[in-house]
């Protein structure tokens, strides 16, 4: 899949439903579109390491993209520490992001990031099922 400038994605159907089970903070799949995901390449410019969700900000060809991550509780336990993000600051990274369902531009949920050192780091729920788990992970 190659996405070029100005493409407007219209996603009408084929939405895979998955309710959040009891243990999820909330269902990312309810807010973000599992059928509208892309690898977004840009320069990591800022990290808001905070609850209930951390955020990454990328400069992508002059525009800012915002990525919602999991909570710092999950991030810290999964190795996505402040230090891990800071080591990639102002460097090129690739973030797997699924777009907001409400149409808000440049807002994504991130499932993983390829850091500047090449490490692929889990940062959020398995919205697409690429980790073999439920959509809400």
């Amino acid at each position: 899949m190659r996405v070029t400038t100005g493409i407007v994605l219209s996603v009408a159907t084929a939405i895979l439903f998955a309710a959040a089970p009891a243990s999820a903070h909330h269902a990312f799949a309810a807010e973000f579109d599992a059928q509208n995901c892309a690898d977004v390449v840009g320069v990591l410019t800022k990290v808001n390491y905070e609850n209930p969700h951390a955020y990454l900000f990328l400069n992508v060809n002059g525009e800012e993209a915002t990525f919602q991550l999991s909570s710092t509780s999950n991030l810290r336990r999964g190795g996505a520490t402040v230090a891990a993000f800071n080591a990639s600051m102002n460097k090129q990274v690739t973030v797997r992001g699924c777009a907001s369902r409400n149409g808000e531009k440049n807002r994504y949920a991130a499932s993983y990031i390829k850091l500047a050192d090449g490490v692929v780091q889990r940062v959020g729920q398995d919205v697409e099922g690429v980790f073999g788990t439920k959509i809400w992970r």
Binding site: S10, K105, N106
Partner: peptide, 12 residues
């Protein structure tokens, strides 16, 4: 898969 620019989302 390469994404060169931001995906503009609309008409979702």
């Amino acid at each position: 898969m390469t994404v060169r620019t931001l995906v503009t989302l609309g008409a979702v």
